[in-house]
Simulated assay, not measured.
Amino acid sequence: MTTWSAPVMLGQRSVSRRQSRRMSRRFEAVGVGIAPERIRAIAMGRPATEDELVDVSFALTVTELLNEKRRSRRGRARRRCTHSLMVIAGIVVAINMLLCMGLVLFILTQHTSPY
């Protein structure tokens, strides 16, 4: 995986039809409209205008930023969930200990004689 500042250019790898359709949809989501056929043509090394290359580079960078943002949000949610589960487990253990201590004190008071 590359960093968001150095995205993989399309000419550096081959792109299947499915991948080109997916890339086209992702590019549309960030405001760059390139047809899947044109993405495949650029990936195969056919000549492209400077504007198309800038658009592709921009779209790749922005989609990588969005993916990184999504991954960080998912990581925070996972940590928050883990923290909540640990707090709940601690509360359950504390309540259990209090109930057990109360039961032990109740049993001890039953065995003592009133005299």
Rank of each mutant, 00 (worst) to 15 (best):
T3G: 10
W4S: 03
S5R: 07
S5A: 02
S5V: 05
A6D: 13
A6R: 12
V8E: 10
M9S: 06
L10H: 01
G11R: 15
Q12V: 08
Q12E: 15
Q12C: 07
R13W: 09
R13E: 15
S16G: 07
S16E: 03
Q19G: 03
S20I: 02
S20Q: 01
M23G: 04
R25D: 14
R26N: 14
R26C: 11
F27R: 01
A29P: 02
V30Q: 00
G31L: 06
V32Q: 01
G33V: 12
G33Q: 13
G33A: 14
I34Y: 05
P36V: 00
R38T: 10
R38Y: 00
R40Y: 01
A41K: 05
R46P: 02
P47G: 10
P47A: 14
A48K: 08
T49A: 02
D51L: 14
L53H: 00
D55G: 04
A59H: 02
L60V: 04
T61R: 06
T61A: 08
T63F: 09
T63Q: 10
T63L: 07
E64L: 15
L65Q: 01
L65E: 06
L66M: 08
N67D: 15
N67F: 11
E68H: 12
E68G: 11
K69A: 13
R70P: 01
R71H: 04
R73T: 09
R74P: 00
G75R: 09
R76I: 10
A77P: 04
R78W: 00
R79T: 11
R79V: 10
R80D: 14
T82C: 01
L85W: 08
L85Y: 04
M86L: 08
V87K: 09
I88M: 07
G90V: 04
V92H: 03
V93T: 15
I95Q: 10
I95D: 09
L98K: 05
L98S: 08
L99H: 03
L99F: 07
L99C: 13
L99T: 08
C100M: 06
C100K: 00
M101S: 09
F106M: 11
L108S: 05
L108Y: 13
T109K: 13
T112K: 11
T112M: 12
S113P: 00
P114W: 10
P114A: 12
Y115H: 14
Y115M: 10
